[in-house]
């Protein structure tokens, strides 16, 4: 406990870096997964390709992906960009499936009546399909967030700084306070991201909170 209090500044700056390394890929990954999932949902053949591809990407172990990133990107081995891109890949691998499932969960009759009323495909996507898919996508996003926070800590092994540094240093020097601080920091960050996504989901889906008996 005293170790934590003595190093609050370090912990805070590492937490911010950790949030950035885990959070930015989450947002980029979501922005890429939405159109990809939309396309995959519309074209049966593409769906198989996307889902199998996502499964393959997710198969690559994290440390291996971090290490191989410079080969693909031409970056230096210590470049944080390696981690951001690798985490974005994981996020897409997880989320594309959620987006496909989410869009697929939109009731057929709702989608059809939207088309019958004259929604263009784009309007229908933003006005009907996407809002109704939010719960499933949010569930995927929460899994990705928690997984990202855990995986990012491994980047300490390739020298990219974040909360994982506390784990590595705490282990190497057998400082249990530091190790615990690292673990707690990661768990708390995962929790905060999880809650943030839940809050956002609630805000985006007011109809799910409506009292079923309350409506006139």
């Amino acid at each position: 406990m005293s170790w934590i209090l003595d190093h609050l500044d370090d912990i805070l700056s590492l937490t911010l870096r950790h949030t950035w390394l885990a959070g930015v890929p989450l947002i980029i990954g979501l922005l890429i997964s939405l159109p990809l999932g939309w396309l995959a949902n519309r074209h049966r053949r593409l769906r198989g390709v996307v889902i199998v591809g996502a499964g393959l990407l997710y198969t690559v172990p994290s440390l291996a992906l971090f290490v191989l990133m410079p080969l693909v990107l031409g970056t230096g081995i210590l470049d944080p960009l390696n981690v951001v891109v690798a985490m974005t890949i994981y996020t897409i691998a997880l989320l594309v499936r959620s987006v496909v499932d989410g869009l697929g969960s939109v009731p057929e009759e709702v989608a059809r009546s939207a088309t019958a009323m004259g929604y263009t495909p784009v309007r229908r996507f933003f006005g009907v399909d996407l809002p109704l898919a939010v719960p499933v996508i949010a569930a995927g996003l929460r899994v990705a967030a928690v997984s990202n926070v855990s995986i990012v800590s491994i980047a300490s092994l390739i020298g990219v700084n974040q909360l994982g540094d506390l784990l590595v240093d705490g282990f190497n020097r057998a400082i249990s306070g530091e190790l615990v601080a690292g673990i707690l920091g990661c768990v708390l960050l995962a929790l905060v991201l999880d809650i943030a996504i839940r809050v956002l989901e609630r805000a985006l889906t007011p109809w799910r909170r409506a009292d079923p008996g309350g409506a006139a």
């Binding site: 928690v146 800590s153 784990l167 190790l179 690292g182 673990i183 990661c186 995962a190």
Partner: peptide, 15 residues
Amino acid sequence: LRAVPTLGLLFALTL
């Protein structure tokens, strides 16, 4: 349990 970082769990248990 999945929220606990793998690396942290590994190090803590080893220590």
